[in-house]
Simulated assay, not measured.
Amino acid sequence: MTTGAPRPSAAHVLRTSFVTEESVYGVILVSGMIVVAAGHGESSWQVFWTVLITVLVFWAAHVYAGTVAHHGFDDGRMVGLGEAFRGALRRSFGMLVAALIPSAILLLGATRAIPDTLANWTALWTGVVVLAVLGFIAFRRRGASVLMQVIGALGTAAFGVAMIVLKALVH
């Protein structure tokens, strides 16, 4: 016998944990780190560690900031430290998830399954695709028309394309 609230559906978890501003920010952060690290001629292994450490630091800072911002009197009621921390963890989860796909691709380069240059560029282009999907889902869940969903996807993906242009200019 179960007690308490029903378990959230997979769609709800996706919507509230991954399709968030933190996810978009996380993909852009990862892409920017790939541009900077790979622009210095570093190997995929070095780029991977740079991305991983940077994302973890930004994620921890985001959780801390969210906890501080929501602790105390928030939305007309008192919010305890534990509740504020759990909420900050939940909201920032997408930032960590956003780093998984590009990091896995960078690991392919680090293990020499694919060349470093291919790993770096593929990780960047994957970021564009992830951003497009995030934009599409965000507009879809708001009931936008298919045309607006596509425009939203393209607009969100444009941030990833901007990182690729930056990489081309830096390289």
Rank of each mutant, 00 (worst) to 15 (best):
A65N: 07
A65W: 00
G66A: 08
V68S: 07
V68H: 08
A69D: 10
H71N: 11
F73L: 09
D74C: 06
D74T: 14
D75K: 09
D75Y: 00
G76Q: 02
R77D: 08
V79S: 06
L81G: 10
G82R: 15
E83V: 11
A84D: 07
A84S: 14
F85Q: 12
A88D: 10
R90T: 15
R90W: 15
S92C: 13
F93K: 08
L96V: 14
V97N: 02
A98R: 05
L100A: 14
L100E: 04
P102N: 10
P102K: 12
S103C: 14
A104V: 14
A104R: 02
I105V: 14
L106Q: 11
L107H: 07
L107T: 12
L108N: 10
L108G: 05
G109D: 07
G109A: 04
T111K: 08
T111C: 06
R112H: 13
I114C: 11
P115N: 05
T117M: 15
A119Q: 10
W125K: 08
W125T: 15
T126D: 05
V128L: 00
V128M: 01
V128I: 11
V128R: 00
V129I: 15
V129W: 08
V130K: 03
V130F: 00
V130Q: 09
L131N: 04
A132W: 07
A132C: 13
A132G: 12
A132T: 04
V133M: 09
V133R: 03
G135S: 01
G135C: 06
G135H: 01
F136P: 00
F136A: 06
I137S: 09
A138S: 12
F139T: 08
R142Y: 00
G143N: 05
G143E: 04
A144R: 13
S145V: 03
M148W: 09
Q149P: 01
Q149N: 07
V150A: 04
A153H: 03
L154V: 13
G155A: 06
G155R: 00
T156G: 07
A157H: 04
A158E: 04
F159W: 10
F159L: 13
V161D: 02
V161S: 03
V161T: 01
V161F: 08
A162D: 06
I164A: 05
